[in-house]
Amino acid sequence: MKLAKLTLCALVALALSLSALAFAEDAHYPVTITTYDYAKTPVEITFNEKPTRAISGQEIWNEMMFYFDLDEYMVAIANSDSNVPEEYKERYDALPKISDTWHNKEGIVSLEPQVFFGWRSHFAEDSLGDIYEWIDRDIQPVVLNCSNNACGNSSVQAVLQDFDNLGKIFDIQDKTDAYIAEANAMLDNIQENVAQLEAPKTVLMLEYYDGDTTVYAWGTNSLSGQMITNAGAVNPIDMQGDISLEEIVAINPDKIILMNAGNSDTEEDRESIYNAFYALEGLRSVEAVKNEQVRIYPLDDIYGGGIRIIPAIEDIYNWIYAE
């Protein structure tokens, strides 16, 4: 009798643990992430299972999908013909594109997606409309945290949060956790190295194009401006806005980053930006200008989020502190 009881207990225990295991498998869902509506109010989005029909509404999301091998879950990705990294070209070509994610409500709905990865401005009045309407249609919206400052408090951590969201949604948290950990390690490393220096460098991030009448400066209120801080340098501008030439001279930055937010990033575009900036004679005595420490970064590398931000920070750090 004792043997029978023992066996029974063992069997029950086995059954329980097996089912526990089974539950553990499914325990990932439902999972909740936080995204933001157009007014920057946080919205909780819950996923009950792994989505199999997703649309990436913008190229930054495209790249994140490719990076984490989420191709098979995409029913359509954003059209970004002019700007696809080499390594993803084939995979990009293989996936269906959706034309005009910004105003193509019908096109998006007809694909019957479960989730739409977009920008804050996608959910403006004159674009795709209210985010809550999409939720009602059972199409979960996920907004890139730092797109148009959607989360209200852009930072590199908010960018990493995008990765975490992706991890939660597609149940690939092991991969995304690893990415985030590596990123944070790199960022901490930069800060440690810089702490040992006599003085960190001063860097400005500006925007100026041929024909412009003002120079724009990116401040630490924005993700882009903060990337300078992340890269171990000082960005003296707190709030983004127009900056006078005098002030640039007074700040006398060691290096200057010029953002190219134009439609294309060809050699000619860069040359045009460079020449236009150097035509501002009043800046000639500025350290960065004198020593030709002016570098152009395309918008995609330093704005909004995605897989380019972290490498860009490292690249900027290496450039700033290259001796």
Partner: peptide, 25 residues
């Protein structure tokens, strides 16, 4: 028609004039 990228850039710089980048030239 050129909005295949993010809609950050707009051609509004003409709307607000400025003497900020004046040069002798």
């Amino acid at each position: 028609l050129n909005q295949d990228k993010s809609d950050i850039q707009s051609v509004t710089f003409w709307t607000f004039g400025s003497f900020s980048t004046a040069t002798w030239e």
